[in-house]
Every structure is written in C-alpha cells, then in structure tokens.
Amino acid sequence: MKKYNWAILGCGWIAEIFASDLKIVDNAVLYAAASRNLSKAKNFANKFGFQKAYGSYIEMLEDDNVDIVYIATPHSFHCKYTLLSLERKKAVLCEKAFAINQKEVALMINASKEHNTFLMEAFWTRLVPTFKKVLSIINSKELGELKTIQSDFMFYVPFNAKSRLYDLSLGGGALLDIGIYPVFTALQTLGKPNNILAYAIKSPTGSDEHLDIIFEYENDKKAYLRAGFRNDAPNYSVFHFEKGTVQISREMNCPIIIKTEKGIQEMKEDDGPGYGYYFEAAHVMECLDKGLIESPILSNDFSLELIKTLDEIRTKINVVYPNHD
C-alpha cells in the first residue's frame, strides 16, 4: 500500500478533528502542519504527531515531500491556497464550503485540470456508511418515490462581530458554515431544484444568523432546510417516501430509523471510530492510486453545482462577502 505525506494548511479546530481521524488511516503519513503562527503550528504538530511544523503556508507548499494538502482555513482563503497548492502539484482536499462563490470554485477546478492535479471538496458526510445506506434506499425504490426532505443543522453561538461565524469578510454566516450540509443533502437526493425560496434572520454584522430554505421540484417534491446559530436543535435529516420515512442523525454511529405501516425499524451502519473524516482521507488516496484528478463519488462538477446553489440562496437573502462579490 503506497503511503502519502499529508500536510495540514491551517491549524484550527476543524483541522484538529481531521488530523485525529487521519491517524486512523494506515497509508496516511502525518508529515507537516502549517499556520501563520509558528508556535501554533508546532503545538499542533506535537499534539497529533506530525513530523514538521511551518510558520508559513508557502514554505510548507515548497516542501517537495508534501503529497496532499488538506486546506482548513476560513472559506475566504480556500481559493487562494488551493491555487497555490495545485500550482505546486500538491493534491488538494479543501474544506467546505469549497470557496466563497462560483467564480472562485471555477478557478480552482480549472487549475486542477491545467496542472493535472487532484482536487476534491472535503464533504465527509457523502462517504460515511450511514449516508450511503440512505442513498441505496432511495435508489432501490423499496419505499417508493422520495417526495420530501427535512434537514436541519443548528446550534447556538453567541454573537461576536469578530468571530469567523459572523464576520462577512471571512465568509461568515450560517449558509457557508453549516447551511451547506442541508443544501448538500437535498442536492444529493432530490437533485437540482426548479425554484428556491430563502429567508434569513440577520446578525448585526449583516451575516445570515438563521436560514429557512425551501427547494421546489417537479411533481410537488420539496426540501425544507434550516440552519443557524440562534438555537440548538436535534439536527436530523428526514426523508419522506411514498411508503415510509427514513431518519438519520448528524451524529456518528446513530441508528437509521425507518418508519412504515409495518412499524418502526432501527438499522445501524458501522461508521467506525473517530469523527468520520477518515473516509474522505482514504478516498483521496484511493483516487491518487488510480491516477485520478477528481473523485468519481464527489465530483468537482457537483461541487460547482453546489456553490451555484449557495450563490443563488445568498442573492435571495441579500448577503454579500466584501472583496469577493
């Protein structure tokens, strides 16, 4: 099994989750961590067992031994560092949202093709067994046609104008940070909507603090999506079919609850240890083993369609990211 040297670009909390899962993957070498603060990079490297620490992103990207870069900066920097990585022939797994807008994502995808180098959006939920099982139920038609989806992602975060979650210059707001998950779920299951309705409650910075979104499809199919920082919630996704419902949780290793006229059935897929991020890390390396420059499961065309949808929602709720739109 070929081993790959992984580098972490940005040492925040999401990078910590990813790094802890990366240790589970046998052919992943925890090679380098980079932050704009060398002390932070060293602390991160020591905590998770990376071989090197850099106080400069560029310096790390110039390291010839780096094979794959996981980009975990705020959204507003994703495009910049993805392009710099691809130019240096480093495979890229970039956190969601892939970038701030459609224009930036298109630049990233074009750079991947130009440099013949792998690029994938880090949507870990697509690769976990529980979500794969839901897709198999949809495709099998065992419960009939999928008619309606309800998907929520909400938790409480007190307002702080300087927080990444509320600062529009960093792509702050519920949509790109957590609203992307319900939107992703709808696109993966019901597909591209014919019409989008969106409503937002704004924070004092003008960011979207809470979102209610409705996707409308042919034959009266609908997706009801919610996201926000105003309150906590159970955060389930419920799929309503002709002959029953399927409910999944955002938590790992929770049962799939299937309700039909025969009663309630609980089915559990083995999502394994950790946070579920190791599935995407393993998948990236499988793609590289095959010489691919994008994932056949989570294609860059899908990521482009996703960001187009997010842009349309932002237009409807009148949210603008300074220096990007």
Rank of each mutant, 00 (worst) to 15 (best):
W6V: 07
I8W: 02
G10V: 00
F18H: 12
A19T: 05
D21V: 04
K23D: 07
V25R: 05
Y31T: 01
A34W: 02
R36A: 03
L38K: 12
L38R: 09
A41H: 01
K42D: 11
F48L: 08
G49C: 07
F50K: 00
Q51A: 14
A53L: 04
G55K: 01
I58S: 13
D63L: 06
V66W: 02
D67I: 04
V69E: 01
V69A: 15
Y70H: 10
T73K: 06
T73G: 07
P74W: 09
H75K: 12
S76M: 11
C79S: 13
Y81S: 06
T82L: 10
L84M: 15
L86Y: 06
E87K: 14
R88M: 07
K89L: 10
K89E: 11
V92Q: 02
L93A: 12
C94S: 15
C94A: 15
K96D: 00
F98T: 09
Q102H: 14
K103W: 10
K103H: 13
K103E: 14
V105C: 15
A111R: 11
S112G: 14
E114R: 15
N116Y: 13
N116T: 12
A122M: 08
K132F: 02
K132I: 04
S136V: 03
K141D: 13
T148W: 01
S151N: 03
M154C: 13
V157T: 08
A161S: 13
K162A: 11
R164H: 10
D167N: 12
L168T: 06
L170A: 09
L175G: 02
L176F: 09
I178V: 15
I178L: 13
P182E: 02
V183R: 00
F184D: 07
L187M: 12
L187D: 05
Q188D: 09
T189C: 14
P193G: 08
A200F: 07
K202V: 11
P204V: 10
T205Q: 04
G206F: 11
I214Y: 09
E216A: 12
Y217K: 06
A223R: 03
A227V: 05
N235I: 09
F239P: 00
F241T: 03
K243I: 03
T245F: 09
T245Y: 10
I248A: 02
M252Y: 08
N253W: 05
P255L: 09
P255D: 08
I256D: 00
I258A: 06
E261R: 12
K262E: 12
G272H: 05
Y275M: 11
E286D: 15
D289Q: 11
L292G: 03
I293F: 07
E294T: 06
S295N: 07
L298F: 11
S299I: 05
S303K: 00
L304Q: 11
E305I: 01
L306A: 04
I307M: 07
T309C: 13
D311K: 08
T315V: 12
H324D: 08
